[in-house]
Amino acid sequence: MSDDGARAVSVIGFIGSVFSPWYAWSGRRRPENHVCINVATYGPGGRFTMTDRGEAALRQSPDCLTVGPSSMRWQDGQLIVEVDEWGAPPLISRVRGRVTVTPRTVTNVELPLTGDGAHVWRPFAPDCTIEVALDAPGWQWSGHGYFDANFGTRALEADFSRWTWGRFPTSSGATCFYDATRRDGTRLATGIRFDAGGHAQEIAPPPPAPLPRSLWALPRETRADPGHTPRQVLPMLDAPFYCRAGVRTTIDGEETTGVHEALDLDRFRAAWLKPMLAVRVPRRARWKFAKD
């Protein structure tokens, strides 16, 4: 998110594109044949890109993930993302440039989201600076961000019905909240405080606090000190099953603005949703690198 709070960007690399209808229709048998670097920009001139690509577009090394024309590489303590994608309908235009993520520190924290470890959240760097340099007016800025990953051996909708997540920068580092309802009826309700050195401390999260429903009437809530009402300050992604937004809340007496996500996996697994998603997530099975 930019320092002035007016713009934001998210970049997600997928091997096994969990929100792709094409991957679901394939039976999820070959994750390497459904890969993607999803780039979304929020604010004036924002665009959404999510192209499901085949195995020919995938290249990996210990320090680099390349999917077709875009890549992520770890270099000199920074995550450098080279973007060259096309926005999804109805705003079809090129999204090209670089995003550089500089962690203040890298953690060794892993949080299993299910008892058997089939889903794991890995907050590599909850407190980062970012530099955005895209080929579009107004899309050269700096701000704060985070770098994390999720790993799983089963479909999300097989084990969860819904979840919310939030990452909020603080004067001493960052605080993250993970709340989920599992299919077996159990719940996850976790708060983790990260200090400037990357040390993590599990905390009792403050009480749940409701947010207004999304444009698709998705129920949302986050965490806030008693007596404080969180509010959305930057709309980001609004889909029938998923909502991402910039949210301002109060934690331990400190007002903070971070990124909040709400995911409804009951909606996501509905058959009627997949054809809608296919419009926004095109399939491009073939790819040839220039030196091939």
Rank of each mutant, 00 (worst) to 15 (best):
residue 158 A to P: 01
residue 159 D to L: 08
residue 160 F to Y: 13
residue 162 R to P: 03
residue 162 R to N: 14
residue 163 W to P: 05
residue 164 T to E: 12
residue 165 W to H: 07
residue 165 W to Q: 07
residue 166 G to L: 00
residue 167 R to Q: 14
residue 167 R to I: 15
residue 168 F to E: 00
residue 168 F to N: 01
residue 169 P to C: 08
residue 172 S to F: 08
residue 173 G to T: 01
residue 174 A to V: 01
residue 174 A to D: 08
residue 175 T to W: 06
residue 175 T to V: 15
residue 175 T to C: 14
residue 176 C to M: 10
residue 176 C to W: 06
residue 177 F to H: 06
residue 177 F to W: 09
residue 179 D to R: 11
residue 179 D to M: 07
residue 180 A to D: 03
residue 181 T to N: 14
residue 182 R to C: 11
residue 185 G to D: 07
residue 186 T to V: 02
residue 186 T to K: 06
residue 187 R to L: 01
residue 188 L to A: 13
residue 188 L to D: 11
residue 189 A to S: 15
residue 197 G to V: 05
residue 197 G to A: 08
residue 198 G to T: 11
residue 198 G to R: 07
residue 199 H to Y: 12
residue 199 H to P: 07
residue 199 H to C: 12
residue 202 E to I: 14
residue 203 I to E: 09
residue 203 I to Q: 12
residue 205 P to E: 13
residue 207 P to R: 06
residue 207 P to T: 02
residue 209 A to V: 04
residue 209 A to T: 04
residue 211 L to W: 02
residue 214 S to F: 01
residue 215 L to R: 13
residue 216 W to F: 15
residue 216 W to S: 04
residue 217 A to I: 00
residue 217 A to G: 07
residue 218 L to Y: 13
residue 219 P to D: 12
residue 219 P to Y: 01
residue 222 T to V: 03
residue 224 A to L: 00
residue 228 H to D: 07
residue 228 H to E: 12
residue 230 P to S: 01
residue 230 P to C: 00
residue 230 P to F: 01
residue 230 P to Y: 02
residue 231 R to Q: 14
residue 231 R to H: 11
residue 232 Q to R: 01
residue 235 P to E: 04
residue 236 M to L: 03
residue 236 M to S: 00
residue 238 D to V: 00
residue 239 A to E: 05
residue 240 P to M: 08
residue 241 F to E: 06
residue 241 F to D: 01
residue 242 Y to K: 10
residue 242 Y to H: 10
residue 245 A to H: 03
residue 245 A to E: 04
residue 246 G to H: 00
residue 246 G to P: 08
residue 248 R to T: 15
residue 248 R to S: 14
residue 249 T to W: 04
residue 250 T to V: 12
residue 250 T to K: 13
residue 250 T to C: 14
residue 251 I to V: 14
residue 251 I to C: 10
residue 254 E to R: 06
residue 254 E to N: 05
residue 254 E to F: 06
residue 254 E to C: 05
residue 254 E to L: 03
residue 255 E to A: 13
residue 256 T to N: 11
residue 256 T to Y: 10
residue 257 T to R: 09
residue 258 G to N: 02
residue 259 V to P: 04
residue 261 E to S: 05
residue 261 E to Y: 03
residue 262 A to Q: 04
residue 263 L to Y: 15
residue 265 L to P: 00
residue 267 R to M: 00
residue 268 F to G: 09
residue 269 R to W: 01
residue 270 A to W: 03
residue 270 A to V: 00
residue 270 A to R: 07
residue 271 A to V: 12
residue 272 W to S: 09
residue 272 W to C: 12
residue 273 L to A: 02
residue 274 K to Y: 14
residue 274 K to M: 08
residue 274 K to L: 09
residue 274 K to F: 09
residue 275 P to Q: 04
residue 276 M to Q: 14
residue 278 A to K: 12
residue 278 A to Q: 13
residue 278 A to S: 15
residue 279 V to Y: 13
residue 279 V to T: 15
